[in-house]
Design a protein around this nucleic acid. Sequence first.
DNA 1: AGCACATATTTGCCTTGACAAATATATTTT
DNA 2: AAAATATATTTGTCAAGGCAAATATGTGCT
Lengths: 151, 151
Amino acid sequence: MSPPTPLSVQKDSIGVLIGLVRSELVRKMEAELQASGVELRFTQFLILKRLALVGPMSASELARSVELDGGAMTRQLDQLEGKGLLRRCPHEQDRRALRIELTPEGDAMWRQMTPCNDRVLDAAQKALDPTEREQLRDYLERVLHTLRDKN
Amino acid sequence: MSPPTPLSVQKDSIGVLIGLVRSELVRKMEAELQASGVELRFTQFLILKRLALVGPMSASELARSVELDGGAMTRQLDQLEGKGLLRRCPHEQDRRALRIELTPEGDAMWRQMTPCNDRVLDAAQKALDPTEREQLRDYLERVLHTLRDKN
DNA sequence: AGCACATATTTGCCTTGACAAATATATTTT
DNA sequence: AAAATATATTTGTCAAGGCAAATATGTGCT
């Protein structure tokens, strides 16, 4: 029925391709961080970045914004608080919640990581001109919206 | 120094975006599989797909081709072999290695999963016309190659 | 106020995957 | 051929993340 030998090389599906790109990006980013003397994993980097860019927010908001499980977030916060990079403060309006905010050390760490981040993203897109970069972002955003819309 | 309030909404970086798209894809794919009565996780789906499309190969080749650690592959093979979807046969030329091949059940399973896979990938790209889909793939391939080239 | 229900955080349990060590077998070098 | 080196598979160990249960608050309805 199906051909006995696979017809030459099968192209990766878009899904596989995206997975590969992501894992390479994470790998490179962690390598860059380590090379800069920053002892953080990719997830922790994302958390700090989020806090630095968006400002203080509750743990669950933070968890949602980096697509991390609530329980996992608790443990990441433990670690990051232990390193003195952020603080768990009481939330003003909601006594159930926390207000997670960067410490000055956390902010300094963020400033130290920013160039790594930029370098990696820039290196990744080296082969794309500005127009193509915009298109890539546009396509990805459209795919994401499609995936999230009901269905 | 930096503005006290974040200036409206910060756009996600390409890196984050790719991560979000990937996790949505995986989620959807696992949901589709489950809805079709297939008891497989995404990784296991990838393994079967690879075997179905490329044909029998050694465990380490398989591991490399789905970017999975060798140890993790051993355990996945345990599970999949336990379900009767594949077999570990002796490798003809290399007595260290195995020849992993789909059983008829595994092949049947693959046929059952193919439509899920197509549905999800198609749904994801619904908002892109054929030209854009090709461009997206092209951009991703270029990014991947750039990331893999030395550096 | 009282009650049902939703949400925030934490914790325990489990699965997955990375990394390293052990063993077996190839491959290359001397 | 012997030794050194590389590769394939398996297993142990560990960290990370998902899920569910527990606890503490909020919110809305009556």
